[in-house]
Design a protein around this nucleic acid. Structure first.
Lengths: 352, 352
DNA sequence: CCGCGAATTGAAACCGTTTTGGATGCGCAC
DNA sequence: GTGCGCATCCAAAACGGTTTCAATTCGCGG
């Protein structure tokens, strides 16, 4: 059942039927009702392919995923981000199209999205420092929104990001307030923008209290269980081992916990741990009582917001770049407790 | 730059240019070369929207993801499956479109995919027992392929699946051969088809050795760290606790390990653990020496295969349903060791 | 020299919508 | 009665390709 058939069935022209269905004002209310009713009765769905061609819009948003050596980093949070964004797209009648391409084909993938008219806009994932994709997308001239930010990029662009620096700064302060002095940082790979910012937050917090930085207490690697375990193990075996950890993800946090427990220590009592929790639907940080104390920010919400912002940009391409900085909550769980300083007499705890 | 412009620039008709580019035989070789060169020079990309309308094909495959209460189950493996499938789509010039919809809108989502012409076929994820979506897709008349199988469904359908029953049967036998008699099953939710089959494998292996089933040693829940921990803890606290576990996923395996280590036991020495490993790119089971002994089957490969099969079905809609059963490997890691039986004199170990 | 088939090209229809640019009829003010 | 504005509808032209059907040219056998 297509528009023309529906029109003849109604004794109307396709023009009128189209206008009636799309809510144009120049059609008689009674006609409109008749059309609507007939459309529903024959359950007519307009052919998307024709709409796209006629309107010149793709009614779709693209996500390019390089099949990269290192894209594992994105993966765990990817599903949730997609879920949030996809929800928004569906609600607005947009399709979400995902291009999984070999690393070296990423640029071409973006170009094709534009030149073949497959997508009206794209979301850029996992930005790195000086990310070359941002100038690229500018050059191509396709509306886009970045999930995260790219340190070092001068060109303007719209983004949504978690305040990673602030989150890790607060987490560090929290540990310091608890009396911890030696705090290990188990960070993600530091060419990723978010990891750089988290490190900055950690460094700033220590500096603000006049505490020295110890390179031995700062590690950076993929956020897997194994690498979390390794980093924590190494630090725990130091002569002056840390009494607390700041860990970049839930998964690496589980590795850190393993290292701790393997040494007969108890997390939350002997060693404090704070993780960053993306609030993934399949990886909940406990129930009402969180297992880990965490800086939490829902990546699914971020996806929703990102999609909304991008649709806004698509609708109004000329506008100013928009930014949205999401604050992470500090969730107190069972993995943190007082540190050595809180017991030393004469040392007053810092004010919060 | 569109076809018509390119044609005038070449002094040819759009017809000829189209044919030249699409490899039709009735065009002079020298003309074809001229056209190809010009197309490359002006880097002409045919407009996908127009192609779709003209050919009546969507050149896209749909994945419907219900934003469900329980779809967490799919999530962790979803990213990898998608990566595999998406790779295949890209190579074949197909788009992957994902519809994230509220639970109750799932049926409508499939109908729309067909009636609005957005997709040429769909992949059905995470089938349950008597899954109603299989008759639905039949009724709609859209080519589809199921990742997994649906016990209880009589209608024919194409699928790709891991031999879950056999994998868990072998794993159980392996533990039995090691001398374990009391083996705990930490399964996924048993309305999911794969969980049913795994349980069957476990049950069959025990039955084959004439061993009794103990309901207290069989649990079923979501595959999270916490529920793995809970299930293992409960069993370990039984008067007659198990000496080995069969666990449905890497994540719940990490929970089980925590329960074990929390009790001062060592995995691989005191308690054996076998998990199922989907070989997720962001969740590797160790490096050269796997941490967990595991039944392993790459879900990314499954995605690749699924996509290829589906494209085949789309190209040849009349054909017979195709099936592909993937065997899981048994990977020996550090989490398994001899059980109590292997020490009892007079009890010969079973043959493998 | 004519006719025929093969090779090569093109004109025009088509895919199913939207959108432009009228048409038509009617009421109403002058 | 004429002109004008308004409400309502429609024919036809897009959109950018593919595909059908026909035209043209050329070589060659009879």
């Amino acid at each position: 059942m297509n528009l023309k058939e529906l029109a003849t069935k109604l004794g109307l022209s396709p023009t009128t039927v189209s206008r009636a269905l799309n809510g144009y004002p120049e059609v008689n209310e009674s006609t409109r009702e008749r059309v609507m009713a007939a459309a529903k009765r024959h359950n007519y769905r307009p052919n998307t392919r024709a709409i796209r061609l006629a309107t010149g819009r793709a009614l779709a948003v693209g996500h390019v995923i390089p099949l990269a050596t290192r894209h594992e980093i994105v993966n765990p949070i990817f599903a949730d981000f997609i879920a949030g964004a996809g929800e928004t797209y569906s609600r607005n009648g947009y399709d979400m199209i995902m291009s999984v391409v070999p690393d070296e084909a990423e640029e071409q993938a973006y170009r094709d999205l534009k030149s073949r008219g497959t997508a009206d806009g794209v979301i850029l994932h996992a930005p790195r420092m000086n990310d070359p994709r941002i100038p690229l997308l500018h050059e191509i001239g396709i509306p886009f929104l970045v999930h995260g930010r790219a340190t070092g990029t001068e060109l303007p662009y719209s983004w949504v990001d978690v305040n990673n620096r602030r989150a890790f700064q607060r987490a560090t302060e929290f540990l310091l307030d608890l009396g911890h002095i030696r705090i290990g940082l188990v960070n993600g790979l530091e060419f990723m923008d978010f990891a750089i910012r988290r490190r900055t937050g950690y460094v700033d917090a220590l500096a603000a209290r006049g505490l020295p930085l110890d390179p031995a207490l700062m590690s950076s690697d993929e956020m897997t269980e194994v690498s979390g375990y390794r980093a924590a193990s190494t630090m725990l075996d130091l002569p002056e081992s840390p009494t607390a950890f700041l860990v970049a993800s839930m998964i690496s946090g589980m590795g850190a916990r393993r290292a701790i427990e393997e040494r007969g220590l108890k997390m939350g009592r002997d060693i404090s741990v704070i993780i960053h929790d993306d609030d993934l639907s399949y990886m909940k940080n406990g129930g009402d009582v969180p297992i880990f104390t965490a800086t939490r920010s829902s990546v699914r919400d971020a996806g929703r917001i990102a999609a909304e912002m991008l649709l806004g940009i698509i609708a109004n391409p000329g506008g100013q770049p928009e930014h949205r900085l999401l604050e992470a909550e500090l969730i107190i769980g069972q993995s943190t407790g007082p540190g050595p300083r809180s017991f030393s007499p004469g040392t007053a705890p810092h004010k919060v």
